[in-house]
Amino acid sequence: MHNIEAKERVSMQLHHDVTQHYFQEATLLQEREFNTWLETFVAKDIHYWMPVVERRYAKDKRPEPTIYDMAIYNDEYDDLEQRVNRLGTGTVWMENPASSVRYFIDHVEAFHTDNEDELLVTSNFLVFRHRGQLEHSEHVGGRRDVLRKVAGGYQLVRRKITLDARVTEDKNLYMFF
């Protein structure tokens, strides 16, 4: 499902379009426009995935995690929708006052795929969350996305999020990556 193969690199113009798309996406999330993000930036057939990756010895021959294994996010559209709806209930006590989340998306590499409407895009992220008086956390990792060309832009069809830390240094990861 997430093993879409990368073909040739995209043109400079297309690369620019994709990075602008990511900046817009980050802006929406930073501004807590979760509904807009979901409705316009996320495809109905999304699979949004953050597998749990163990520290294993180099000689260990066990396969990489699949979507059937333990994952922190293993969401389809209705799962993401429920997460967004929860944030809109007004009873998420820890988000009142709201936390500040800021995104740094970098190292964007974009490729064509066998499907002419879809691009494979990998990127690095650095996400900071500040909350209350002194509370803060940071998360570093990579994303492997499939973006689909739609009227007026792109929609996210696949997102595999890999966190570099084995132990999450945060009380939760209830934010979008």
Partner: peptide, 25 residues
Amino acid sequence: REIVKQAVRSFGTAGTLESDDGDNM
């Protein structure tokens, strides 16, 4: 597989209920 998915969805690191508890704790 569905139980793993649902259990983690509510009480995993990004869980919809876990996130409420962690802050209180």
